Computed example of a mutant assay.
Amino acid sequence: MLIKIVEDVDLNEAYHYLQDPGAGGIDLFVGTVRDHAQGKQVVKLVFEAYAPMALNEMQKLAGAAQQQWPIAKLVMVHAVGEKMVGEPVVIIGVASAHRDAAFTACRFLIDELKKTVPIWKKEYYEDNSVWVNAHP
């Protein structure tokens, strides 16, 4: 498993890590900073995490996914720090023998990460900013 909290997300590292001769399906989700939120223009986001707890929760999610699906390799990487519109913030990747398991496990991991992992974001708009839970 490749599970990290980082300053900069490396898409190539994630994809190369997921390579496995027994995996016929690789699902790679990349979450990026969008240019709007709550009806306002977003200028940038700033992410903070309590890394020890976040990594522990990410490990738990990875273990739960491995118990439910036949996963060959798994990636969960989330960025912290300032991120501009279009920049990658989170990568979830799953390699499995078949695409269905890869898709389903990947969806489970991103959905649960957003619910349980202690990562917060501050949204900067043109006129103000606000701290929000990164996970609705």
Rank of each mutant, 00 (worst) to 15 (best):
E13H: 03
A14C: 14
A14L: 06
A14K: 06
Y15K: 14
H16A: 12
Y17K: 08
Y17R: 12
Y17S: 11
Q19D: 12
Q19I: 08
Q19F: 00
D20F: 00
D20K: 02
G22R: 10
G22Y: 09
G22M: 09
G22E: 14
G24H: 07
G25Q: 02
G25V: 01
G25S: 06
I26E: 13
I26S: 13
D27H: 10
L28Y: 07
L28T: 03
F29R: 03
F29S: 02
F29G: 01
V30Q: 09
G31P: 02
G31Q: 06
T32L: 07
T32K: 03
T32I: 15
V33Q: 07
V33S: 06
R34D: 00
R34K: 06
H36I: 02
A37H: 13
Q38L: 05
G39W: 09
K40Y: 06
K40Q: 14
Q41D: 13
V42P: 15
V42A: 13
V42M: 11
V42N: 14
L45A: 10
V46N: 14
V46Y: 15
V46D: 13
F47T: 10
F47E: 09
E48H: 08
A49D: 07
Y50H: 15
Y50F: 15
Y50W: 14
Y50G: 13
Y50M: 12
A51K: 13
P52H: 03
P52G: 04
M53I: 11
L55N: 05
N56H: 14
E57S: 01
E57M: 10
Q59T: 11
Q59P: 01
Q59A: 12
K60V: 14
L61T: 11
L61D: 12
L61V: 10
A62N: 04
A62D: 04
G63V: 02
A64E: 15
A64P: 00
A65W: 00
A65L: 03
A65V: 04
Q66R: 15
Q66N: 14
Q67R: 13
Q67K: 15
Q67C: 08
Q67G: 12
I71G: 11
I71Y: 01
I71V: 11
I71D: 05
A72Y: 08
A72R: 15
K73V: 03
L74A: 02
V75Y: 07
M76V: 10
V77M: 13
A79H: 02
V80N: 09
V80L: 08
V80R: 06
G81M: 02
G81Q: 06
K83W: 09
M84H: 13
V85A: 12
G86S: 05
E87P: 00
E87D: 09
P88Q: 07
P88K: 02
P88F: 00
V89W: 00
V90I: 13
